[in-house]
Computed example of a mutant assay.
Amino acid sequence: MQKFLFLLSLLSFMLLTCLGCESIMNSSLSTEPPPPPPKSSGYLTEGATVKIDTGYKTNRLSILEQLDQANKNLTTEKEKVASLEKEIAEQREIRKMLEYKIEENERQLQFLETLQQENEQLRKQLVNAQAPYEDKIKELTLELARSRLEETKAKQELVGLKIELLVDKKKNQ
């Protein structure tokens, strides 16, 4: 990481130096277009011959190659950052939606608890209101049972009297 920072600062210094020279050259008073750079045929025409050890024995890169690699890495990292920011925005939207649903569920839960309490109160009122009628129904059921017993006894007596009459008739005959 330190090597990378050193190379980056060295590269930025070189770029600033080159840009400064170019701006001085462009600001000349002549109206003629600048002459094209001469094509050289020396040993530097293929690029810098300075190689920097990157820590790997077999991998020696020139500063320009390292700069290109750093630019590629920077663009991929920017793409990753943009992707992560988009994902974070989506996650925030999902979070807001879930928070809203949780609040809505809490409201519904409170409403259901209120309904349950009201239902329990109504049930108690109904039980209390039914109690006197249930007692009356029990009394009437007992009276009905007694009257049926008396009716059955009366029928038995009537049947017994009819039998006696029939027996008396047969005796008289």
Results as ranks from 00 to 15, higher is better:
23 S>R: 06
51 K>A: 06
83 S>A: 09
78 K>Q: 15
29 L>K: 12
50 V>E: 05
73 N>H: 11
47 G>P: 00
76 T>M: 07
36 P>H: 05
83 S>P: 00
34 P>I: 13
83 S>Y: 04
68 D>W: 11
47 G>W: 01
79 E>W: 01
84 L>H: 11
63 I>V: 14
67 L>A: 15
37 P>M: 04
53 D>G: 03
59 N>T: 08
76 T>W: 02
27 S>L: 08
87 E>Q: 15
24 I>G: 01
45 T>S: 05
61 L>T: 00
65 E>W: 00
31 T>M: 11
47 G>S: 03
35 P>M: 10
38 P>R: 13
66 Q>V: 11
27 S>Q: 05
26 N>Y: 06
60 R>P: 00
26 N>L: 14
33 P>K: 15
40 S>H: 09
67 L>D: 07
30 S>V: 07
85 E>Y: 02
26 N>V: 02
75 T>R: 08
84 L>C: 07
48 A>T: 11
41 S>I: 13
40 S>E: 12
60 R>S: 06
57 K>N: 08
64 L>S: 13
22 E>T: 05
39 K>C: 13
72 K>M: 08
49 T>Q: 09
34 P>N: 07
54 T>R: 01
39 K>M: 05
45 T>V: 09
66 Q>W: 14
53 D>Q: 10
59 N>Y: 15
52 I>W: 00
79 E>V: 04
64 L>Q: 12
27 S>N: 08
